[in-house]
Design a binder for these strands. Structure first.
Lengths: 148, 148
DNA sequence: TCAAATGTTTTGAAGTTCAAATCAAATATA
DNA sequence: TATATTTGATTTGAACTTCAAAACATTTGA
């Protein structure tokens, strides 16, 4: 009999990678020539209250230098544009092009379908205890200090 | 108010990455010069019923070629050894060296502590509904077809 | 003003992964 | 039994992701 810890461990080690693969393959099938990490960058830009390099990099948990590299290619491919903050011209702000919004919409649709399939299979949609527990787990990690 | 889907989405996109980072940093603090993916390879070897290249690569969801590369460096570093299956000399079997068992023990201890901290914080240890739900979620992804 | 701090980019290196080519051993078939 | 095919693994070259350190630009503070 597995303990809760072992199940959580399994989720962390195996499942996460599998989901990334599934989503990556979906992108390919849909003819979208972006990797999952590029999608994550676009998502972070989309959700950013403050769309500056530092702020987005922090959300993604990568260095600003790494983000610059990613943003360079996304710009080349026409998914984003850069502009300077007029208040502070050191700051580079990023905005999504229409092309990016389209891709995010398509990706969200797939993601929703996948989650929907899970719920259909598991019948957990109305499971209030699960919802509460997951919310707490998510909250826990959200606030967990990322030493740096 | 977030929906269950949004919470799951958050878990998938943000939280798992964060956990990988946390665990990776713990390795560094402990003076272990291995990446999380190398740890995953060692774990897969450790748990393998059939410790052959093909079988381990399949568990990890990577190609056998990629695993060969990983195994080469783990061998260089003295964490594993290779030998041929005497029944079928094409097959290469992998075994862990003591060094690897030590690292896995240390890693497991940290992982347990982390999970323990979560449970202490969340008080979900005896939450049977959560356990059942997580088990089903894990099971779902385990069987999800990885098209290849 | 100019030194320090802050925000970003560039660069070089390391790690991960894949696909394709190659090699080695086992199995099937003529 | 020879040899063609299949199966298991390795090698190689390329792409991608990421980081750290150096460099650059702008702002802020003494």
């Amino acid at each position: 009999m597995q303990t809760t810890k072992e199940i959580i461990n399994e989720l962390l080690v195996e499942i996460f990678n599998r989901i990334l693969t599934i989503e990556g393959e979906a992108l390919k099938r849909q003819g979208i020539k972006l990797s999952m990490s590029e999608i994550h960058v676009l998502e972070a830009i989309n959700n950013a209250k403050d769309p500056s390099m530092t702020s987005i990099a922090q959300k993604l948990g990568i260095t600003v230098g790494s983000l610059t590299v990613a943003v360079n290619t996304l710009f080349q491919k026409g998914y984003i544009r850069r502009y300077h903050d007029e208040e502070d011209r050191r700051r580079v702000l990023i905005a999504l092009e229409d092309k990016a919004f389209q891709v995010l919409r398509t990706h969200d649709e797939f993601h929703d379908k996948m989650i929907h399939a899970i719920f259909e299979d598991l019948k957990v949609e109305e499971d209030e205890v699960l919802v509460q527990s997951l919310r707490r787990v998510a909250g826990f990690f959200k606030d967990y200090p990322v030493s740096e």
